[in-house]
């Protein structure tokens, strides 16, 4: 029965399965990075700089003689941490703000939503860039910056959901029994808004990774010598004419990861969102 169900699922949603596999592999790579990387990602081998892909250095070396393969493996940790971290922070704050805003209504609602509108009026990359520069360029701040920028998406989503949930009988009943607002929001409203938040979050991880990589690319994210994919593409770009491998492999890593998360997110939406069910 179970097996049959999976087989059916794989047939119906082959791309989702591919996406899930990609994420699982990358997650595993990140987890066991120290075990599988052949070299220390930060160790300089000055005599071996800019070597092409070969036997000792599978994907070649960078301008400081560091092993690119090991750096890409370790980079998975940073990129996954960035992606998951961003959507978690944005998701949690967005859900709380959205449910409070929707449930309380009135002035609170007005203030929160107008603030969110202001944030949505900026292109997300530009706002993230400004915030990251203001906080001081490092990896943690770049995650915070992108998370803040992504909050409005969740606020709007949860607020809309809250407006419909709060008219439901069980909420009305709880109110009649004199339940506190905090209790109702945390026990009734938020649990009933979680499904769309999960969909939004999985769909958002890919984009979050991309923005975090973009920030590192322009020097506002991870700082050297951290093995971050976006930063590696950025430095490798200078060497593109003679050492094609330097920028190419981290670029491919970003590409595969983001595609994986997007395919997975698509599948999760299809499963959880009734409107998209065929």
């Amino acid at each position: 029965m179970e097996l049959k169900y999976y087989r059916y699922f794989a047939k119906q949603y082959p791309l989702t399965v591919v996406g899930t596999l990609i994420i699982l592999i990358i997650g595993l790579v990140a987890l066991v990075a120290p075990l599988i990387s052949p070299h220390d990602p930060l160790q300089l081998h000055l005599a071996d700089r800019l070597l092409p892909p070969g036997h000792t250095y599978l994907l070649g070396t960078d301008e400081m003689g560091r092993d690119l393969f090991s750096r890409i493996i370790y980079g998975a940790r940073l990129s996954l941490a960035a992606g998951v971290g961003i959507v978690s922070i944005a998701g949690i704050f967005g859900t709380v703000l959205g449910s409070v805003s929707g449930f309380l209504g009135g002035k609170t609602d007005l203030i929160i939503m107008r603030l969110m509108d202001i944030m949505l009026a900026f292109p997300s990359l530009v706002l993230a860039l400004a915030l990251s520069a203001a906080l001081g360029p490092n990896f943690r701040n770049s995650i915070l910056a992108v998370a803040v920028v992504k909050i409005p998406v969740y606020v709007r989503l949860v607020r809309g959901q809250t407006l419909s949930v709060k008219e439901k009988h069980f909420v009305k009943a709880a109110q009649t029994f004199g339940a506190s607002k905090v209790w109702i929001i945390s026990r009734h409203i938020i649990p009933n808004c979680l499904a769309p938040v999960m969909v939004q979050a999985t769909l958002g991880i890919g984009e979050a990774i991309l923005i975090a990589a973009a920030l590192s690319f322009i020097g506002l994210g991870a700082q050297p010598p951290a093995a971050e994919w976006g930063a590696m593409v950025s430095v490798g770009r200078t060497y593109l004419l003679d050492q094609w491998w330097y920028a190419t492999f981290p670029g491919i890593a970003i590409f595969i990861t983001v595609v994986g998360f997007n395919l997975f997110g698509d599948g999760v939406r299809d499963l959880l969102d009734p409107r998209f069910r065929h």
Partner: peptide, 20 residues
């Protein structure tokens, strides 16, 4: 839709590399 998503990914990536 998924092909579109995929195509979008590719474009964003190239956009990133072409930034500077």
């Amino acid at each position: 839709k998924r092909i579109l998503v995929l195509a979008l990914c590719v474009f964003t990536l190239f956009g990133l590399a072409g930034c500077a």
